[in-house]
Amino acid sequence: DELEKRVKKIARKLNLSLDQVEEWLKRNNNDELVEAVKRLKKK
């Protein structure tokens, strides 16, 4: 979905793993995208 695409884009842009992106999003209080990261990690 759109949020998952955004997460992947962030990960690529910042050259981070999904775990690192998740931490980064949590620090930025971006719950919506944190949920998207969790969905991606399950895939």
Rank of each mutant, 00 (worst) to 15 (best):
V37M: 03
K8M: 14
L33D: 00
Q20V: 04
Q20A: 09
N30I: 15
N30D: 12
N30W: 15
E22W: 09
V7L: 09
E23C: 13
K41P: 02
V21C: 06
K5V: 11
V34M: 12
R12L: 12
K5A: 14
R12K: 14
D1P: 07
E23Y: 04
K26I: 10
V34C: 06
D31S: 11
K26S: 11
K8D: 08
K38V: 07
K13M: 14
E2R: 10
K38M: 01
W24S: 00
V7Y: 02
K8P: 00
L16Y: 08
L40E: 02
D31K: 12
K5Y: 08
E23S: 05
L40Y: 04
N15A: 08
E2Y: 12
K41D: 02
R27T: 12
A36N: 02
D1N: 11
V34W: 11
I10V: 03
L18V: 03
R27Y: 12
K26V: 10
Q20D: 10
K43P: 04
N29T: 09
D1V: 08
I10Y: 01
L33P: 01
N30K: 14
R27D: 12
K42R: 09
L14M: 09
K5E: 15
L33Q: 01
D19L: 07
L25M: 05
N15Q: 09
Q20N: 02
L3D: 11
L3F: 12
N15I: 03
V21M: 14
A36P: 00
R12I: 12
K13D: 15
E22I: 12
V21Q: 00
A36Q: 02
N30G: 09
L18E: 03
K8W: 10
D19E: 09
E22V: 07
D19Y: 05
E2S: 09
R39V: 02
K9A: 15
V37I: 12
E35I: 05
L14N: 07
R6K: 13
L3A: 13
V21E: 00
L18F: 07
A11F: 03
N28S: 12
V7T: 01
R27I: 14
S17L: 10
N15P: 01
L25R: 00
K41F: 07
L16N: 02
N15S: 07
L14W: 07
D1M: 11
K42N: 11
K13T: 12
A36W: 05
N28I: 15
N28R: 11
K41A: 06
L18D: 03
E23Q: 08
D19W: 05
D1S: 10
S17F: 08
K38H: 04
D19V: 07
K9Q: 14
L3E: 08
K43G: 06
K9E: 15
K13R: 13
K41Y: 04
N30T: 07
E4S: 06
A11W: 05
V37A: 09
E32W: 11
K43L: 11
E35R: 05
A36S: 03
D31M: 15
L16C: 11
E22C: 12
E2K: 11
E32V: 10
R39C: 09
L33S: 01
S17M: 08
L18T: 02
R27E: 14
E23V: 03
L18G: 01
W24G: 01
L33C: 08
L18Q: 01
K43R: 11
R39D: 05
V34T: 07
R12D: 13
R39G: 05
R12C: 15
L40I: 11
K9D: 15
L33R: 01
L3C: 13
N30P: 04
K5I: 14
E35F: 00
R27F: 14
N28D: 07
L40Q: 03
R6N: 06
